[in-house]
Computed example of a mutant assay.
Amino acid sequence: MRYFLEMAYNGTRYHGWQVQPNAHTVQQVLDDCLSKVLRHPISSVGSGRTDTGVHASQQFVHFDVPEPLDVEQACYRLNRILPPDIAAKHLYAVSDEAHARFDAFARTYHYRITLNKDPFLTEYAYYLSRQPQVQLMNEAAAILLRYEDFTTFSKVKGDTKHYNCNMYEAVWGQYENQLLFTIRANRFLRGMVRLVVGTLLDVGKGKLTVAEFEEAIASRDRRNASGAAPAQGLYLAKVEYPPHLFLPS
Rank of each mutant, 00 (worst) to 15 (best):
I113G: 06
Y163E: 12
V197E: 05
R194T: 04
Q59E: 10
T50I: 03
E72R: 15
Y3F: 02
Y76V: 01
N186A: 06
H99L: 03
A216S: 10
Y9D: 00
R39L: 13
T114Q: 07
E212M: 10
Q133Y: 05
S249E: 15
K205Y: 07
A216P: 02
V203M: 12
Y168P: 13
S129D: 15
N79S: 13
E176L: 12
Y9Q: 05
F60L: 12
D202G: 12
E67M: 13
R130K: 15
Q18Y: 02
V29F: 03
Y235A: 09
V29K: 07
V61K: 02
F246V: 01
A56P: 06
L38Q: 03
Q27V: 00
Y126M: 10
N22E: 14
V156R: 11
R146W: 02
Q59H: 12
R222F: 00
L179V: 09
A93F: 01
D96S: 10
R107A: 04
M137N: 08
A98L: 07
L195Q: 11
R146P: 01
I42V: 14
D103N: 10
V196N: 08
H162M: 13
F4H: 04
R39K: 15
R13W: 01
A140G: 10
T108W: 05
E148P: 09
A141V: 02
S219V: 02
L236A: 06
E215K: 15
G11Y: 06
P84N: 15
E169P: 00
G191P: 02
A88D: 06
